[in-house]
């Protein structure tokens, strides 16, 4: 487990999160995250061999909805909250790359 986070890694993470930091801010973040990660490293003291991870404590299983369509008719309210809209569509600065999926 990495004990700290390098500035380079922090830059990469900021790119993934789409947040911009100044160089000085990034230094602070690296320091703070480094402290937290040092704390997180104490987890290695716990032997978790063969321990099943817990991602949720819900006891529910198979919580389904029947395949019945129900239109809540929220289109107008939703479009009115959009920063920009035109012709019933959400307007955003041009997408230039090929996209995903």
């Amino acid at each position: 487990m990495a004990e700290t986070l390098s500035k380079q890694e922090a830059k990469h993470v900021a790119e993934l999160a789409k947040i911009r930091f100044t160089d000085a801010e990034l230094d602070v973040i690296v320091g703070q995250l480094g402290n937290i990660l040092t704390l997180v490293d104490t987890l290695n003291e716990v032997d978790t061999t063969d321990v099943v991870p817990t991602y949720s404590v819900t006891e529910n299983v198979n919580m389904f909805r029947d395949d019945v369509a129900d239109n809540w008719n929220q289109k107008t309210d939703l479009l009115n909250n959009a920063p920009q809209q035109q012709d019933d569509m959400i307007k955003v600065p041009a997408i230039l790359d090929g996209g995903d999926n």
């Binding site: 909805r65 239109n71 929220q74 939703l78 019933d88 569509m89």
Partner: peptide, 27 residues
């Protein structure tokens, strides 16, 4: 071609006007 979406009850239907088949979950 289910009747409704995977995670919201909005109808699955092609060719409707933009965003007609959307709700707060889809947004």
């Amino acid at each position: 071609k289910t009747n409704s979406k995977l995670l919201s009850p909005s109808p699955v239907n092609f060719g409707d006007s933009p965003n007609a088949n959307t709700n707060v979950i889809d947004w």
